[in-house]
Nucleic acid binder design. Structure first.
Lengths: 216, 216
DNA sequence: TACGAATTTCAACATCTGTTGAAATCAAAA
DNA sequence: TTTTGATTTCAACAGATGTTGAAATTCGTA
């Protein structure tokens, strides 16, 4: 247990509270009270509340994008076009591994992302700014894997994929009740085993060669 | 344009604002100011803020559950076990039809549901209370359609499905930017055409006869 | 019209909110 | 030690928030 600077304490507490209660549901005074620092320090280090939130988003996005980009490179180095499953796995693997095995604070970060990705006001813009360049790389790889895919289908498939991931990281415990305790929303290992084949099958159904599979 | 009672005006404005800005991001004074009524009326008609929100959720959930249950009955009356696609369609069809063609205020309601379904604090409980009985009926039908399905896989598939729907109703405009204007997050007709085959393929990949398809 | 209930208005409460300016403290370099 | 810049503390602001009790008004009905 190393000791943290005041700035680091704010970051740690803010990340957790924003993930649990959302942007509007978290006050600077809760954050600074729990971190044991003065409220005015938020202004000094981050400008204001929005600045703090943006900085939290930005910080980890950079490292994450590099890591996921490398994962895609590794897949494509072996074979390009790569199988759909491998591309999907490269995108998802990194996220879920961080949550399962690494630094547990990543869980809060993904919880924050879940809140942002579902925010109708500024969530779409924020997600696009931080992650769309990376997503485009993955869609390029998927396009090469399924050359006859309709463009719009590719984007909508990613949209469904993103939604499934987002609800997972929201960790709402709903599946615990629905399944009568059989499943647990925090069991990211279980998600990891099932998300890749589920999403890959969805992509193939809509983007694979054999004609138009849309419904109705 | 019929004239609404004060209670109805509160309901109409609250539904829209809660959908756009979430529970914590919406104040009673915004709601009542925009509705042109006194703040104290919220207390009189709904008890308090949470009471208003709960009532908004409850109101439409009842009608919706009946309608979707009937849609499932209609499918099962034709053939049971029914094809996966038809079961999935019965669940999704009702929602998307309401948004596309009927009373546009349903859009706000689904926007609210999106916020609730992603809320880590009390969202899971609220969704379970209102919708899990109906969801269990659909999962029963899917279990009969895929008798060898692992129980946990069924629940996780529904989880992915729910996430895809939720992000759709959040309507964040992210896909507009990502696709360079090719797709629009409010184009629920496009979602309707693609969600059913996408989700059905995912279910089949994880729950269909031929052994274990989980990843890794 | 008169009565009783339902509805609406008014004014205020205690508390919390994000933000701020200026003083105080600290740490390191000259 | 003195100086300089970074960091932290303090006190306060103006306004918003959910909630409330009681008075005033409206409405349906006897």
């Amino acid at each position: 247990m190393k000791k943290l600077s005041n700035k680091e304490r704010i970051v740690a507490v803010a990340e957790r509270l924003f993930a649990e209660r959302g942007y509007d549901g978290t006050s600077l005074r809760e954050i600074t009270r729990e971190a044991g620092v003065d409220v005015a320090l938020v202004r000094y280090h981050f400008g204001n509340k929005q600045g703090l939130f943006d900085e939290l988003l930005r910080r980890r996005a950079e490292a994450l994008n590099l890591e996921r980009s490398d994962a895609l490179d590794a897949v494509l180095a072996r074979n390009d076009p790569a199988p759909v499953e491998e591309i999907v796995d490269a995108f998802t693997h990194t996220l879920l591994n961080k949550v399962v095995s690494e630094d547990p604070t990543w869980r809060s970060y993904f919880g924050m992302l879940a809140q942002v990705n579902n925010n109708p006001e500024w969530g779409g813009k924020a997600m696009s700014r931080h992650f769309d360049p990376l997503v485009r790389r993955f869609l390029d790889a998927l396009r090469r894997a399924m050359p006859d895919a309709d463009e719009t289908n590719l984007f909508w498939c990613y949209h469904f994929w993103s939604g499934a991931l987002t609800l997972t990281f929201a960790d709402t415990k709903r599946i615990d009740a629905l399944s009568g305790g059989l499943c647990h929303s925090s069991d990211f290992e279980a998600v990891h085993q099932r998300l890749v084949p589920f999403i890959s099958a969805g992509f193939r159904a809509l983007c694979q060669p054999q004609g138009d599979n849309t419904h109705d």
